[in-house]
Design a binder for these strands. Structure first.
Ligand SMILES: [Zn+2]
Ligand SMILES: [Zn+2]
Ligand SMILES: [Zn+2]
Ligand SMILES: [Zn+2]
Lengths: 134, 134
DNA sequence: ACACTAATGAGAATCATTGTCAATAAACCA
DNA sequence: TGGTTTATTGACAATGATTCTCATTAGTGT
């Protein structure tokens, strides 16, 4: 997926790999701050700003999902597959990746109906998972 | 909609009315900061923190829609009708309220399928409206 | 009018994210 | 390989939205 990052004027650094790897290890969504902390605790000397930059790159390359947590913080998640959405447990944070082809079509149709082009959308479902029933 | 705010331990102040009214006057989504500025420009002496508090109340009472703009800012919009979603133009900000009963059902079904309860969701469609085609 | 206490507002405090810029090190070439 | 170019890094400052603090104000019911 995405491009192999050759030829382009982008350089490969251990920092980018470190972020990519740490994101892959993480379970669920993590913030840049959390990821930076993890990396530091593992002995890395990577800077916070770099983690932010690397995550932004991964996200815009489609290699990471982004969504804003309820307390105004961007959280990321490694993402191998293409476009999809999430079902997220409000209390434990467990996430399920869901395929929503029906809804994709619906969204595009609605947009087209109103003369909108270059459409995109945000769809997230929240709930309490079976393990979290008090 | 919602309750008339009687009996409850909530007090009626001109500040809350001012925010409610200003939000109603606004076209499209506005941030707390913008609303505060508008109110001040109209001679009000209302404080910024109060605008934040009033908007948060309106939102949690279901009288206002909230969504976070792409630059990490909460924006609000007066909302008389019940639960619904928006089709938003990326460049001019025009919004269309859309009914999404099909998707509502789909979302609930997907959640139930995975054993999730007390579900809610976020669905927003973005695009470029017909008037904004360069 | 009075007491009780929610609500307000000015400013400080938080805190995630972005900008700055000198130093570093990929990528490329001779 | 050694040298050149310049994307990238990282420490720190700066930004900016939102929240907190707390003394003061003003609804509400009596
Ligand atoms: Zn994903
Ligand atoms: Zn989709
Ligand atoms: Zn609405
Ligand atoms: Zn809905």
């Amino acid at each position: 997926m995405a491009d192999l990052n050759t030829s382009a004027s982008k350089r490969n650094t251990w920092q980018k790999d470190a972020v990519r790897h740490a994101l892959g290890e993480a379970t669920g969504f993590v913030s840049a701050q959390q990821l930076h902390l993890v990396l530091r605790n593992h002995g890395s000397t990577i800077g916070l700003a770099t983690v932010y930059r690397a995550l932004a790159d991964l996200a815009s390359a489609g290699d990471a999902d982004v969504l804003n947590s309820n307390d105004g913080e961007l959280i990321y998640r490694a993402c191998a597959t293409g476009h999809h959405h999430h079902l997220i447990c409000r209390s434990c944070g467990a996430t399920v990746e869901i395929d929503a082809s029906k809804v994709e079509n619906w969204a595009d149709a609605v947009a087209a109906e109103h003369g909108f082009t270059e459409t995109s959308h945000t769809i997230e479902i929240f709930g309490t998972c079976s393990a979290c029933h008090s």
